[in-house]
Amino acid sequence: MRELIGLIIIGIGVAFDFFGSFGLIRLPDVYNRLQAATKGVTVGTWGILIGVCVLSGFNSLGVKALLAVILIFFTSATGSHALGRGAHKSGIKLWKKSVCDKYEEDQ
């Protein structure tokens, strides 16, 4: 039973990872691609790690997996801020159909 639940959670995680990667290819500019990469891939990886935790139980391996969930929450969001800000500072324009850019106006 526990094995089944763990495998289902891992499967959901892999599905989210797939959609994240698909968005990375399909969306038009760097900011939209960051959205897909950050959200999809972060939660996909959380799914895989929590599945590992359920499979292995509350021991050395499971606790490390849970710890990795917390660390990924901070690093992936922070990494996407850094990438987005760096892209904007180096002058990459938004997609041509974008509606507004308040950040550009305030610089």
């Binding site: 959609f19 900011y31 939209n32 850019d101």
Partner: peptide, 20 residues
Amino acid sequence: ANVDVAYRVIHPKMPIKPGI
């Protein structure tokens, strides 16, 4: 958020209207 992004990515017309 994930279901939202997945929906926008799979949808053939890509219903996005981005901006900052």
